[in-house]
């Protein structure tokens, strides 16, 4: 209960950001809120199950298209809900098809999914003679920030509830040993599919919320595969084994990216690549792992 109150307080403080700064810092705030939402929901599934999903860009792109196609006919809030629904259904379909697979097969399929969805959407656009999609709304940066913050809060709450539920317990057993889980009577496929729907829905809703920020929706920008990788790297930098783990990865990583792109305009991609290598080499278990190690060492010292 105390944790819940503290978390609510933290969100309340974060929600005040647009009143403090309406420019640069708010822009960074949007980026942080976006990646926190994506990385935390990613870790809800991939943390306990150890399935690495690269499907974030696919769901995200679907969400931007839901807003792009519907903005002239439906209110914005309903589009966000609709995107979540479509994302969840898509995730369930993908889960049914692939979650019986494991390891590298699953990774490859999710990577291909963004490309698959993108090609399906362009195929439909091509055959219907669709013109460019423009999302012109009155939603400004502060509005987008609050939407994302609300979604992030919902993700944390969902994660907290799952962690306390039978589903969460089942998933931890699956993550430790899937065969044992199956033998103890857990319907492993059903559990995995249910949980996979969470990051699917959340990524689609994030895309739907961010579409007004991009104004013009085109496949190459909506389905950019780099997004999937960024989410994985941020979540791993923080640590996927705790609910708050991705958050401590997202914040330093956003500032790192910002520093690199403002100081090395001609070598941005190169420097980011090197940063990835250094992170993986020095922090294999993320900040959460580092913290655990430090805590263990202090405890060991105390015992001595």
């Amino acid at each position: 209960m105390r944790n819940l109150i503290l978390a609510a307080l933290a969100f309340g403080i974060c929600a005040l950001l647009p009143f403090g700064d309406n420019g640069y810092w708010l822009g960074l705030g949007v980026t942080i809120a976006m990646f926190t939402t994506l990385a935390t929901s990613w870790a809800l599934f991939s943390g306990p199950t150890h399935y690495i999903s690269l499907a974030t860009a696919a769901f995200f792109g679907v969400g931007t298209y839901v807003t792009g196609l519907g903005i002239d006919t439906l209110p914005f809030w309903s589009l966000v809900g609709l995107a979540g629904l479509i994302g969840a259904v898509l995730a369930a379909l993908v889960g049914l098809a692939t979650l019986r697979l494991s390891g590298v097969y699953f990774v490859i399929f999710t990577l291909g999914l963004a490309e698959l969805v993108r090609q399906v959407i362009t195929w439909v656009q091509n055959n219907t003679g669709q013109k460019g999609l423009y999302v012109l709304t009155d939603l400004d940066e502060a509005g987008i920030y609050w939407w994302l913050l609300g979604l992030a809060a919902a993700v944390f709450l969902t994660g907290w509830l799952i962690g306390r539920s039978r589903l969460g317990f089942a998933l931890r057993i699956i993550g430790d040993d899937e065969t044992v889980a199956a033998h103890s009577g857990i319907n492993t496929a059903r559990a995995k599919i249910l949980l996979f729907m969470v990051p699917g829905a959340v990524a689609a809703m994030t895309g739907a919320i961010l579409a007004p920020r991009y104004v013009y929706i085109e496949p190459s920008l909506a389905f950019a595969p780099i997004l999937s990788f960024q989410v994985v790297i941020m979540a791993l930098l923080g640590g996927a084994s705790r609910l708050w783990g991705p958050l401590v990865g997202v914040i330093p990583f956003t500032f790192l990216l910002e520093t690199v792109s403002s100081n090395f305009p001609n070598q941005t991609t190169l420097v980011i690549g090197i940063a990835f290598l250094v992170i993986v080499y020095l922090l294999p278990n993320g900040f959460v792992g580092l913290l655990d190690r430090v805590l263990r060492r202090t405890k060991a010292n105390e015992v001595q």
Binding site: G27, T31, Y214, L221, S261
Partner: peptide, 16 residues
């Protein structure tokens, strides 16, 4: 600034 053909980066760079 390089926006890496990424609208999110373009937005950040213009803001910066």
């Amino acid at each position: 600034y390089d926006d890496q053909t990424n609208p999110g980066e373009t937005i950040k760079a213009v803001q910066r």
